[in-house]
Every structure is written in structure tokens, then in C-alpha cells.
Design a protein around this nucleic acid. Structure first.
Lengths: 227, 227
DNA sequence: TAGCATTATAACAATATTGTAACAATTACC
DNA sequence: GGTAATTGTTACAATATTGTTATAATGCTA
């Protein structure tokens, strides 16, 4: 089991903290929450892989907290996602050189959040799981090969990325939109049926394990490791 | 017409209860009031979307009541706003791991209260819960699975959304109109008997738990977690 | 309990979604 | 530059889902 990535959520609304914590943990991260910038600064910031900060908080606001995080040797490179309720704050954010890696406007859905978090972490963390195995499938992200029952199957880049993503997030269903934003580059636009085609290609190449890629009709796809 | 959100006010001052009730109802919520924690615990807590608790009450104080609410399966995620007269209690609240979602200091204006209530309710949405369980039924919005007694039952998109909605608002009856506007896309028009058919399909797939979907003749449907 | 209203259910039709092959566009590689 | 591999798109076939209707069953009220 891979080491979970740690996320610190700083928001003064404890409901939102709870909901975020539940959802992030469900998505496979280790999440801590604190209700203020002061509390955040008492923590050991170096252990986190991502910060999610509310912009508008009493005393220390999100911007100032971000600055403090940037000054801390152990966290000066850690990505930050801001939550904001107001458009005016977004403008501020963009102008502001505080190192916002992304922002998300309240109210947001948990799906949206998961996509952002994953995408930011993917950009920043070099620590991907190098190798994932499921039964006879081995997918190795360092050497970039995939074997099924010892035999190498040649996957194209897209197929590889898709399978790697699905397998590293096994037993979750993803919408086509989520897959697009998680597997494809941010700046390309492809129609969502493209995913179906790539799923189809993957299934064929996976042979008897093709059925492990499941379809949720009306929703999307996923990789299952059990029935 | 959207279903009104229900609020339970627990305060031992009956004048304050009345004032709160009038104001909350005026603001468009359905408000019930009780004068003690004991009375509160006799209610079906699962129908409420928010609790407003006085901290200082005889016998069961607000903190203990909150703990009880958190232990109840149907209300363990429901937000709580505490009312308190003393600063010392606020400090306690912050330190206390009871899941206070907000607090408001007495005396407060009705405006203040409405702002808090709206903000907490807006942030919190039951649809954010990744996973709901009731006895042997598990419905998981991340994996998009529904299992009954460990066995996956395959639900279509509509069936899934319907069950998820009913279970996340358990023990409430919804009219067909409400279900249409909550579960179906806004831009589709379907006749309301369609809901009966989908309810019927769900009941079949739920097997012995089919009876948990109750019919309120002349009104609509709901999901009950007890008799 | 009769009579009306409402709901349950099955069967069917209409729609929507997905699978797949073929092709075109793009990229990678000698 | 030419060739092969990759990738995205489209079209159409195959499935699956969804809504509607008709009729049976049940519930409600006087």
C-alpha cells in the first residue's frame, strides 16, 4: 500500500471541513482540518502535500496564510488550492503573487474538488506509485511497460496513462469528464466518445482482464479489483 | 417547489423558541422547537437538516446533546449551530471535538441568525456524503455501487439517483413533483407516474429492503429507516 | 363494503448510451 | 521525406435505459 498523500484543509466553517475531510479521505488521501490560520501555523507544515485554504477567514486570511506557508522552508513548494466565495477574490488571487496553484469557487461539488486535487497533486508530486499490480497485470510507471501474465502488452501512451490512472484509483467510477481532466493534458480538447474508444482498445489488449474495466451506464468507467 | 429544510431548535427558554420558530419559518424553513435535550432525543432526528442548540440547559446540556446527535445514524452528519451566552463556552466549543459547525453568541439579532443558518445550510448538502449505509444497504457515490447484503445490485443512473436521494433524506416523504425536481434533470419533462415505475423497479432490486421505500398514498414516496 | 382514487406492475415503445470498426489526422521515427 | 504508429473522430450497430400506457391491485372514505 502506497503512502497516502496528506492534505491540510483550513476553513473556518467546520461543516465544510468535515465534508471535505470525509470526501478527501474517501478519495484516498489523508486529510487534516483546522478552523483557522493560527491553528494551521502551529502544525508541522512540512508533512503536507497540498493545502486547501479558505480565502476569507478571521484574523489571518487565506492570502496571509499562504505567504506564511511559502516562507516556511518545509512547505515553500507545496501546492495550494484556494476556496473562495467571491469573484472579486478570484481576481485578487490571479493578480496576487502568492503561488496559488488552483482555486475553486464556492459552492463547489465534491466531484469538482476531487478533480482539482488530483490534477494539482499530479502536477506537483513526483512520487507516483512506480508499479501497480493486480493479479497477473503489472503496470510499471518508471519503465513504462505493462505485462499481463508475464507477457508484455504494448500500450500506447494514452492507453498506458488511462490504465495507470484507473488502476491507481481502482474501484472508483469516473465520469468521462473526470477522465479527460485527469488523464488527458489540460490544454487539449477531445470529444468524450474518444474515451470509449480508448477504453475499448484497452479492454482488447488486456485480454481476459478486459472485463475488469467496468462501465457504469450513464456515468462512466472504472477498474475493479473484485466483483 | 423545493422541499423546505427542517430545523430543530432546542432551547429551554420558551420565549426564545417561539421567536426563533417564527423567524425561521418566515425565512422559509420548517422549524420545530423543543425545550430540552430529553424531548429532542425523543424526536426522529433523521428528518432535520440543521440543529440549533442552546449550550446551557438543565440535565442534558448542548454539548452532550450534540454528542448524542452525532451517535445517531440518521443525524451524525447533520450540522449543528450552538447558541451561547458566555465567551468561555465559545472557547470550550472550539476545543471540543463535538462537531460544532457554527456558534452564535447571545443576544443575537434574527438577522445574524438567518445569515448563519443560511450559510451553514448552503455549505452543507447531503449529496456530499460519499457513502450512505442503512443496515445491509450500502450506496456509494464515489464507486457508484449499491450493495445489498454484500451483493452488488446493478442500478441504472435514474434508479441510483433516486435511491441516493431518498436515502440521504431518509424518513421524509416527497411528492412526485419534489422528486422530479430533485432527481431528474431540470430540462426534462416526464409524467409523474414515471416515478411510480422507477420506485417499483428500485423496490424489486432492493429485495427484502424494498419495503423500506414507503408509499404515502395521495402524497408521494420516501425511504424509512425504522417503523 | 361499495365506489372512487390512487398505486403497483407488466409490457411495450421510444430514447439514450455504449461498443466497435473504419477512416482521417497527427505525430514519431528512421 | 517517407513510413509506421498513434490518436481522435465519426458512423452505425448493439445494448441498455427510460418513459408511457394499460390494466390489475390496493387504499381510502363515506
Amino acid at each position: 500500500m502506497e503512502k497516502k498523500q496528506r492534505i491540510l484543509v483550513v476553513d473556518d466553517e467546520s461543516v465544510l471541513c468535515d465534508v471535505l475531510k470525509i470526501n478527501l479521505e474517501y478519495a484516498g488521501y489523508a486529510a487534516d482540518t483546522v478552523l483557522s490560520g493560527e491553528e494551521a501555523l502551529q502544525k508541522d507544515l512540512s508533512v503536507y502535500d497540498l493545502f486547501i485554504l479558505d480565502v476569507m477567514m478571521e484574523k489571518i486570511n487565506g492570502f496571509d496564510l499562504a505567504k506564511a506557508i511559502r516562507l516556511n522552508a518545509g512547505s515553500n513548494n507545496t501546492p495550494i488550492i484556494f476556496c473562495t466565495a467571491l469573484d472579486s477574490e478570484i481576481d485578487l488571487l490571479k493578480g496576487f503573487d502568492v503561488g496559488a496553484d488552483d482555486y475553486i469557487k464556492k459552492p463547489f461539488s465534491m466531484n469538482e474538488l476531487r478533480v482539482r486535487v488530483r490534477s494539482v497533486l499530479r502536477r506537483y508530486s513526483s512520487s507516483h506509485t512506480p508499479r501497480i499490480e493486480y493479479e497477473e497485470i503489472v503496470i510499471d510507471n518508471v519503465q513504462r511497460y505493462c505485462t499481463v501474465a508475464g507477457e508484455e502488452i504494448s500500450l500506447t501512451k494514452t492507453e498506458f496513462n488511462l490504465l495507470y490512472f484507473l488502476m491507481s484509483n481502482a474501484n472508483q467510477a469516473f465520469t468521462r469528464e473526470e477522465l479527460l481532466s485527469s488523464v488527458w493534458d489540460d490544454d487539449v480538447y477531445v470529444v468524450d466518445r474518444t474515451i470509449d474508444v480508448n477504453i475499448n482498445r484497452l479492454r482488447k489488449k488486456l485480454g481476459k482482464y478486459g472485463v475488469n474495466i467496468f462501465t457504469k451506464s450513464g456515468y462512466g468507467y472504472g477498474f475493479k479489483t473484485h466483483d
